[in-house]
Design a binder for these strands. Sequence first.
DNA 1: AGCCTACGCGCC
DNA 2: AAAGGGCGCGTAGGCT
Length: 561
Amino acid sequence: MVALVPDLVGSGGRLCPLRPDGQPAGAVEAAPDLAAAVARREAAERPRWVWAATDETYPRLLERAGVRPARCHDVKLVESLLLGMAGRHGSPRSLGAAWARLHDLPEPADAREGGADDQPVLFAADRQHLPQDADPLTALVAVYADQRRRIAASEHPDRVLLLCAAESAGALAAAEMGRDGLPWSAAVHDGLLTDLLGPRPAGGARPALLNDLALRIQQALGRTVNPDSPAQVLPAFARLGIPLHTTRSHELREVDHPAAALLLRYKELSRIHAAHGWAWREAWVRAGRFRAEYVVGGVVSGRWATRGGGALQIPRLLRGAVVADPGYRLVVADAGQLEPRVLAALSGDPGLAKAASAGDLYAALALDAFAGDRPRAKIALLAAMYGQTSGEAGQLLAVMRRRFPAALALVEAAARTGEAGGTVRSRLGRTSPTPSASRFVDTGGDADGAEGAGDFGSSDQRAARSWGRFTRNFVIQASASDWALAMLAALRRRLTAIGPEPRLVFFQHDEVIVHTPAALAPAVEEAVAAAGDEARRLVFGPTPVPFPLETNVVECYADAK
DNA sequence: AGCCTACGCGCC
DNA sequence: AAAGGGCGCGTAGGCT
């Protein structure tokens, strides 16, 4: 363990070796060239680097020396996890905030990203909102030691330690992927857009095809409407005797009228144009790479988010534009049926575990309990995990409850906990927020009893049920995220062992893409499989449930699956 | 003009 | 009786 603090100005910094419990284990080293010092130590002893925030410190190290540390402890991310476990999700989590809590000082508000009221932003970021008289290295070491104490005092210290390590490793991978970028062929992208939308109009204008479709929609509806405005489209359909509830594709697909088909086509194409068209490419693709900014811990469940570019929503229609460099391949790895497998492993339900042991969990489930009807089996399982009870789901759920009692007991207990205002945890301890801090409560707006006397509390009940569905899903989604992060960390380590060339270039909940020289693709596939198994062992222990990662070695993302 | 919410749809 | 999880991002349309 080595604590690291960059100097406020210049490219130097200070290092301090630490014992495992966080106490200093040697003299502070002043390093005039911090990146070089990190590279040296990394090569010699591969320490776990302790720093205030990976997303602020690591990009500079990468930029200056190309160091890729094996391990780190990200104080800000760990603080966020530990605060969440203590029921304090919204609290400021910077080093300065943690330091203030440690010393019973008033907490500083963490600066918002790109905050408007211009303090010297870089300066504030470097100091992690520490008071002026606090030494950053002293604070870092103290807060780290305190975090280790809090981890050790938790109910499952081994799991929480793993969670913190995986979250921190994820931050390393996120910074690297943000820098490397996803290979993106502008030429292929352009070809796809032109096939769909026609030639690119000059000056960023809308493609003629879209204007054309809009006109034809208006003709079919007999009215001048903006097809992008549900408020205009709904009455236009109503006038034709077609009462729609919404203008969602799902509903439009049931409508037998030429305007509906045209509108569906318009929606599909206008979305491509607006969200991933030529303008998007000019904003986000440079030098053959789409560089997204990953936000580790951006979702309470532990899933990542991204800032800008919509990296986690690349439309299937455009995946042909993700093309490996010449002589390289994409190893696309996907953990199929991850969430039901997580439910099987978490609950230990023997029937579900047995289904998970077959290659296709849904098919096995269908054979076992749904007369071989795979679609119904899938609906039943999704209903159990999401809390759906409408339509046929209610019936199917009864079958699930009878046949897979342990699995259903787990999700239903999580739902009841949420409905009662409690919190639930993932396998590794990531904790759901409390409903009071949430947008799901206080949305009723019927405080004055506007709903009538006979219906008391219905809005509160709706909110409670809604929160119950959230916590029901949280235990699964967050535990799936535990597994995915552990897998990502293991894969990152194993890729490094193969060599400097194979690079993680994409991570999306249960899927990774590695960009690698073609000759190394088989080794990468092996690393992927091993990483998946390692994650299963670390996160779920001796479960019989397999977590297979399907890998495809392709030149083009569209050819995977 | 900028900010906010509702809606809708892309992904998992 | 009814009750569908998590995001990002674009447009529309109302607000200040």
